[in-house]
Every structure is written in structure tokens, then in C-alpha cells.
Design a protein around this nucleic acid. Structure first.
Lengths: 175, 175
DNA sequence: CCCATATAATTAGGAACCTAACTATATCGG
DNA sequence: CCGATATAGTTAGGTTCCTAATTATATGGG
């Protein structure tokens, strides 16, 4: 085990309700500890899931971002502009440039200069890139399913609904 | 607006159910698109929340990690070992070293060599560090509450329960 | 007693994503 | 038609966290 000291005690998830209650009391705040706990746990879950995904994709020589780029490319007839990719993936164009650099180096995509607009350089999924997606598909989707596997069908749709509300809550904070 | 091209179209969250369905059909997989969508949306929500938190803390000259370190320190009588902090925060000791470096530079914590074990160098919350926590408390907790604000009390406790199951699902994948 | 081994913290270097500045190309108004 | 401005993509450099190697100190068996 490389980082066992990195795995939190499974009987005491972070942050604990007790810890939050102490903080709220210390500052004499008018907030509900349980409510704050929900937000904190969501953040923890997101971090954990993100890390797990990164580990998963690295086994195929990819990162989460590079996998998502390939998948989005395939979903758009195998060719897109970097700016479109940036919008679809929710990252900046600078980040897309970096993702493409590595994917191109590995032969999974190639760049093509547009004949219509000389500023544009569209990105094309290569045959090797399509094969990579094909190779990963089964395990990738099985893992995605496994994450939600402990939830019943009703719970899944409920969770999706709640998640959507929380996502809107986050949006209203960042605007 | 610095990165408006970075904000996904609000009428079409990523990834869309349609996109996942196309992928599943293309590879002829035996998975449920809705189920996969739940996992994908959770990952997106986590990323979004993490980013929002980073922006929030940066207004106080901190990062999420450095804030969490200070809070954990305060919750442990203002003094802890780096290894304890690493375990509590769920990061490596190397990361803790980096967090402490900056917090010490800014006068929010100080390092003290142990008289018991010469290898240990405990971290102490300074008065300035405690003041920083005090200054941030109200806004910080208000924001945490706002994230979950669109959920009713029942939904919050339900969400927490579902989140816990999903977190276990992630754990079982990474072991 | 002292050498092999374990442990605490740090350093060195890498990966992912960011913002801001830059280059090259396109377009619009006088 | 041509200079000002806008846009596409890239580059440069910063932040956060990681793994692996290193340094310093402690401990246990021959």
C-alpha cells in the first residue's frame, strides 16, 4: 500500500457532525449543523470520486479530461473545434490545448487546419482513438454503474433530482 | 467575465442522458443510462463545488486545504502533528508540509519541534490564525448552508443517506 | 552496544487545470 | 482598402495535490 495513511478512518467520515457542531457553537452562528454536513460530505464525495476516476483512467494511459475529450469527439462525428470541446467539457481552451497535445502525441487524435477559417484547427478522432474508447467502454460503464449500485432504482432517480437542486444551489453562489 | 466560454449551457447539463444513451448503444453494453448518468452528474457536481470552494477561500487568502487544516487544528486544541493533520484531512504528509509552509509564511500557524520525539515537529495555531477562522466563520457557514438551501429538511437527510451509500460504492471500487 | 529497520517530515519532480498574455487570422467601419 | 478590433488557438507561469526519494531520529534483536 503506497498511501494507507491517506485513507480516513472508515468509522469516522470527515468532517464529522460533532466537529461541525463544535465549530458552529464556538462562533455562536445561526446555522444548522446537519445542513452544513450535507454540503461538506458532498464535497468529500466529489473529491473522492474524482480521484477514483483519475486512477481508473490512468490504467488506460488516459486522464479523466482526455477520456472525456475523446468521448465527446466520438459523439460529434469524430471531429470538433477546440473551442467546442472546451465548452462541452466545461474547461478552458488552454486546458483543451494541453489535452490535445498529449492525445495527438499518443496518436489518439490529430489536428487539421480549417480551409474555411485559418484560425481554426479542428481535432479529429483517429482510428486508434476510436479503438481506445471501444476497449475501455465495458469496464468504464460497469464502474460507473457500480458506484450507484447500492441505490435502488427509486433512490437513483431521487438522488438525481436532489443533485440537480444542489447543483443549482452551487450555481447561485458562483454568479 | 473572465471565462464565460467555460460555463456550460444551462439548458443542457453535461453529460446529457442522450449522449450516454448513444454511447451505450454504440458499444452494445448492458448498462442503464440513467444509472450512469447519476454517477456522471455526481462527478460534475463535485468538481463544480470544489471549484466554487476554491474561489471562496481565495478571497480570504486561503485555499480549501489550508482552511481545512486551520479548522482541524482549532478543533484539536490548536496543536497537532503533521501526520495527524494528513490523516484528518485525507491528504498525504507531503501535501501537509506544503500547506504548513504557506500558513507559516503568512503567520497563521507555527512549527514547534517536539521535546519527546526529535522527528516530530508539531504545528500550532497562532492568534492570527484563530482570528482568520473567526473572520471567515459567518460567511463560510452561510455559504455552506446556501448550497443545500433548495432542499427541504427531509430531502437533506435523505440526500445525506444516499450520499453515504454512494460513497461506499466508490470505496468498494478503489480497494 | 550497535546495526538494521521503522517512522516523521521534507524535498524533488510530475499531473491537471487555471488565468493572463501572446500570435495569427478574420472582419468591420470609415 | 486598410487600420482598429474581435476571435481561435497557443504559450507561459501559477496552484493544488500527488508519488518517490531523502534526511533525521528512534527502536529492537543479536
Amino acid at each position: 500500500m503506497t498511501n494507507e495513511h491517506n485513507i480516513p478512518n472508515e468509522y469516522e467520515a470527515i468532517p464529522s457532525l460533532a466537529q461541525l457542531k463544535r465549530q458552529i457553537e464556538r462562533y455562536d452562528l445561526d446555522v444548522d449543523a446537519q445542513t452544513v454536513l450535507v454540503a461538506a460530505r458532498l464535497m468529500a464525495a466529489g473529491t473522492k470520486l474524482g480521484h477514483a476516476a483519475e486512477v481508473h483512467f490512468s490504467k488506460f494511459g488516459l486522464s479523466t479530461g482526455r477520456y472525456r475529450l475523446l468521448a465527446d469527439l466520438e459523439d460529434n462525428a469524430g471531429e470538433e473545434l477546440p473551442s467546442q470541446l472546451a465548452e462541452h467539457l466545461g474547461v478552458t481552451r488552454a486546458t483543451v490545448t494541453g489535452l490535445i497535445d498529449i492525445l495527438e502525441r499518443d496518436g489518439l487524435v490529430s489536428r487539421r487546419t480549417s480551409s474555411v477559417d485559418g484560425r481554426q484547427r479542428s481535432v479529429v478522432l483517429t482510428e486508434l482513438g476510436a479503438e481506445k474508447l471501444q476497449d475501455m467502454a465495458e469496464e468504464h460503464f460497469a464502474r460507473m454503474e457500480a458506484i450507484v449500485g447500492l441505490l435502488s432504482v427509486e433512490e437513483r432517480s431521487l438522488f438525481l433530482d436532489l443533485l440537480s437542486k444542489v447543483t443549482h444551489g452551487i450555481s447561485s453562489l458562483t454568479e
